[in-house]
């Protein structure tokens, strides 16, 4: 495949899902004629019809609840939530029903529902359009939670998510929608595998989604100061590929977790705690965290100060190296 933007890669992934499995349906607000507000579903309704690509009423609980019903009837719904901040009306259905159905039914029913959500900030948007709520989902047993950081992963992880018989929360870093890359001919990794995206020896940066790019840039800058920083892209937030993470951290002896979500009770807390248990005797410094502040996502004119950037990542790298 040629070079594709992340939004186009997901679009192609969805197209493939619709082509290969007649039980897949896409549901969401404005996903039809408009092709979604980010054009991720562009052209799909035209090619697969209104029965497969459904412009739903404006009601997220309704979308989610009926997707569950369709799954019970043997369908494989792919739900689009228009923006991160609008998933909450569907939260009840996701947490109390979608996540628990398989367990409650003792495995007699499956919930192969993929919930696509453009998330995270950095695009200068108004309130509710920039949030990182991955921890809520990762905190809920029964949900798989993944987030690609680049077009190739976006394409293959989407296809793997749709093929999964479990519900998958598929978080799309909207600031990365326009990044371009080549798509591989076949998936290289398991959906839930982490990936070392830059090898190094002195410290491990752990990131996912939108922050992988920031961390790669930080590692490149640190190299000029003689620091060889390893960057690991988590890709999956539930389950987390702790084996890959621990292998890296044991080697480098230092780790910094970076995410946009507030640090307090974020993914970084779980990662730091577990990796400390698993790598205790290899650690040269406490595992540090860089992330958003404990405050509502701010107005866009100050989001740059809220979001971790090169400087804040490097500041934490320096502090970890100085231990």
């Amino acid at each position: 495949m040629s070079k594709l933007t992340m939004s186009k890669a997901i679009n192609e992934g969805l197209r493939k899902c619709l082509e290969t499995d007649p039980k897949t349906v896409i549901m969401g607000e404005d996903v039809g004629k408009l092709g979604g507000v980010f054009r991720v579903t562009d052209g799909l309704q035209k090619d697969f019809g209104e029965d497969r690509v459904i412009d739903t009423p404006l009601a997220e609980s309704g979308i989610m609840g009926t997707a569950i019903g369709l799954a019970l009837r043997g369908y494989r719904p792919i739900v689009e939530i228009q923006f991160d901040g609008f998933v909450y009306p569907a939260f009840d259905q996701i947490v109390t029903q979608l996540a628990k159905m398989h367990a409650r039914a003792l495995g007699h029913v499956k919930m192969p529902v993929t919930v696509r959500i453009p998330y995270a900030g950095g695009i200068g948007a108004v309130e509710h359009h920039s949030e990182s709520h991955e921890a809520y989902f990762a905190h809920t047993a029964g949900l798989r939670v993944v987030t690609p950081s680049n077009p190739d992963d976006a394409y293959w992880m989407l296809r793997q998510s749709v093929e999964s018989d479990d519900p998958v929360i598929f978080l799309e870093p909207k600031a990365r929608y326009w990044d371009k890359a080549e798509i591989s001919a076949a998936p290289v990794l398991d959906l839930h595998a982490a990936k070392v995206v830059r090898p190094g020896t002195d410290l491990t940066l752990l990131a996912y989604g939108p922050m992988v790019k920031t961390c790669l840039e930080a590692a490149a800058v640190a190299e000029q100061d003689g620091h060889r920083i390893e960057v690991v892209d988590l890709r999956s937030l539930s389950p987390v590929d702790f084996a890959t993470l621990a292998e890296s951290v044991k080697r480098t002896g230092r780790a910094v977790v970076v995410h946009e979500a507030p640090v307090f009770m974020g993914m970084g807390a779980e990662l730091a705690a577990r990796l400390t248990e698993q790598c205790f005797y290899h650690l040269e410094a406490p595992i540090l965290r860089v992330g958003g502040y404990f405050a509502p996502y701010p107005p866009s004119r100050v989001e740059e100060q809220f979001l971790p950037d090169l400087d804040r990542v490097l500041d934490a790298v320096d502090r970890a190296l100085a231990f």
């Binding site: 502040y293 404990f294 405050a295 107005p299 100050v302 809220f306």
Partner: peptide, 21 residues
């Protein structure tokens, strides 16, 4: 706005974590 606006008015009463950050 001054970026410290991020921390303003998150709570009506002082909150230790917000003040720390």
């Amino acid at each position: 706005p001054d970026p410290t606006l991020i921390f303003d008015h998150v709570y009506a009463e002082p909150h230790a974590l917000v003040e720390e950050e």
